[in-house]
Design a protein around this nucleic acid. Structure first.
Lengths: 152, 152
DNA sequence: TATCATGTAATATCATAAGTTACATGATAG
DNA sequence: CTATCATGTAACTTATGATATTACATGATA
């Protein structure tokens, strides 16, 4: 099954935007993401409607974050993307008349809902600031590992 | 995103098989499921490899359950299907060199893993027998609802 | 030995995400 | 003013994977 990687892609975009001064053009982001500027605009349009970014036309225009990284959770971004389907698993029939199939679907749906609740709770608990800080941790971990390795 | 509905379909198939005496042909199952017999065989082949069903060729042949409904959990069936991808959400790049993207992916993956653990735990807790019994509950609920409705 | 059923490879169909093209709208520099 | 730059967006193309179909092989039974 094909996977939707918009969330992963958008996080990447936003973290890079936060590192740059001033607005960033769709062309520049597209090069960073190795994709087409129109794809960037489509994604960013959703974020703009949810107030996470703003856009400016003309010379010196582009995209800009409207809040600090610590004020954007992964859940905010997921919602801004239109809450794309979480699961690759679904029901064969939407409203089956067969009672057995209804029962099977109900059970699957309950399990999926419980899992989705956990997922959204996790996304709500992480901000973009956390992700940025994690990079520092990773670098530190790496250095520690290297130190350990070279002294062993 | 397109959804994989094999789990839902297979539960439906197995519950019907348990209701019928003797082996059931792929053709008959295909008609029940409004699909093609080859699709049924493909799915059932996976279940057979995991010992959940057995097949017999020739006259009077077909598919048969190898255990009682109470000895088959939804997790057993999920595994027999080859543990298909649970999530429609994925990473944009498998092994990104960008540290920011690594951090974003790591966080998403952790959230997905937590959710997957919950999902599998739920699937492990439900047997086909439970699903069959749930049908009774639904019928009772419906009757209760109708009683309530008609006496209100 | 004719018929029935599974086994399976090869191919076709269909839905959807992602990518591309083309052109409209609006802002700014000169 | 107008040339340029940037977003806005509709229409179209491409790529991918799930599902469906066809065709034929294998094995069991009446």
């Amino acid at each position: 099954m094909r996977q939707n990687s918009q969330l992963s892609g958008v996080l990447h975009i936003l973290l890079h935007m936060a590192e740059l001064d001033g607005p960033v053009t769709s062309d520049r982001l597209a090069k960073m993401m190795k994709t087409n500027p129109v794809v960037i605009r489509r994604i960013m349009a959703g974020l703009r409607e949810n107030g996470l970014v703003q856009s400016e036309k003309g010379h010196g225009g582009g995209w800009r974050l409207t809040r600090g990284l610590s004020e954007m959770t992964l859940l905010d971004i997921y919602k801004a993307l239109g809450e794309p389907a979480v699961f690759a698993i679904g029901n064969r029939t939407e409203s089956p008349t067969c009672l057995l199939e209804q029962s099977a679907n109900a059970s699957i749906n309950q399990a999926l809902k419980d899992a989705e609740d956990v997922l959204l709770a996790r996304l709500r608990a992480v901000t973009l600031e956390d992700l940025k800080n994690d990079v520092g941790d990773q670098v530190r971990d790496l250095r520690h590992w290297n130190d350990h390795d070279s002294t062993a």
